[in-house]
Design a binder for these strands. Structure first.
Lengths: 209, 209
DNA sequence: TAGATTGTTAATCGATTAACAATC
DNA sequence: TAGATTGTTAATCGATTAACAATC
């Protein structure tokens, strides 16, 4: 079956299935039913079936899904085997963590250079990634045809550096700064807003005290 | 007007409004309309009005919302002025980044201790936070009546340390590990799945190439 | 075969968006 | 007053969940 268009909610659940399937594989399980996945992952079995079907997977009635094949299929679908080059802008705490975060390397994220305006960092290497001055950002992005930029700067300079990335031809920005960025329609911004998660957590804490 | 029950999507948008309102405040703006917010934040104005109304805010027809009062109100509503004590478990790259992440401090997250099993880290301080052995986690959580735990360990030990937290009476877990955690119904888990965001980003990159 | 599981259509649920009267 | 904006009810949209026939 051909892969249909996959919705964002589905796309976000796939990596969760994948980690659990790998766990099963390590234990030597060969097949798994969505009924089982449903119990463990606490999600509706129909939803899991629809999610898998959306990637083009087919299961066997009465049997379930082949663990190894499903892993292989999902990894291909998510593009874990082909790497994407990226620039990281803002070598603070969070930036450094992302630069050295192994799970991203395993999933095919390849940060080729990082940028900062701190003279003490420029010229150094962090987690094997060279740190360059932000002045080189736009030109280098053009020259290297970089399509993905990861933004981990303080809020005050977020828009300026976004502009620099956009000018350099970057088309997808992973934004960790708690601000909306202004970008042309052609540029996609993926927002990872830790403050939003914190808001949910604090509300929850209020209600249980 | 009284604050109604606020949905999670609404809760997650409030911090975004807040950062932009502070930006306006710095520029000396005294009032703002949801029409204006809508243009800048690229969100439906009705949604913004509903979100604000859900927190108990009222605006002035023809005028809009008072910037300073709205900021004050939202900060109170989100509990930025009263701190929540938390334990952080797993002092790797990501854990360290969170320990030193200023925006969390400003929003009232107070990490009082961190835990790891690496002997080289134990006894040290990182960003002013003491690192202790994971063996002390459960007892100390009980004694200090800690309600919030932040989980930034490798996947292989995530469930074990979750169990340790739950046994220590922790009721809310902020999980950065790309796995579902098994917890009793009384425990709430907030999932921040960076792998899910990466999945969305990689798909986007595939489509623009 | 009987029963478990898949795959799909239909129903439900909840969030977003549209329409519009009320208000300063 | 006229017009912009709020606040709210109604309509829409999309995602989740339920029901159930098809399948091995």
């Amino acid at each position: 079956m051909q892969a249909k268009t996959v919705t964002v909610p589905t796309l976000k659940r796939l990596p969760i299935y994948l980690t659990y399937l790998k766990h099963l594989q390590e234990q030597g399980r060969e097949v798994v039913s969505t009924t089982h996945l449903s119990r463990v992952l606490k999600q509706d079995p129909t939803q899991i079936r629809k999610d898998l079907a959306a990637t083009g997977l087919v299961g066997k009635p009465k049997v379930g899904f082949d663990v190894s094949k499903t892993i292989e299929h999902l990894e291909n679908f998510l593009g874990y085997h082909n790497t994407n080059d990226a620039f990281l802008v803002g070598v603070g705490n969070l930036g450094r963590a992302i630069m050295g975060y192994l799970p991203f390397v395993e999933k095919g994220l390849n940060i080729v250079a990082a940028f900062d305006n701190n003279p003490e960092l420029i010229g150094k290497e962090i987690a094997g990634i060279p740190v360059l001055t932000v002045e080189k950002l736009t030109d280098l992005a053009k020259r290297m045809k970089i399509k993905l930029g990861i933004l981990t700067v303080p809020e005050s300079v977020a828009q300026d550096l976004t502009d620099a990335m956009v000018e350099g031809g970057i088309q997808v920005i992973w934004n960790f700064v708690p601000t909306r960025l202004m970008v042309p329609d052609s540029v996609y911004v993926e927002y990872t807003q830790l403050s939003s998660h914190l808001a949910v957590i604090k509300k929850k804490l209020q209600s249980i005290k």
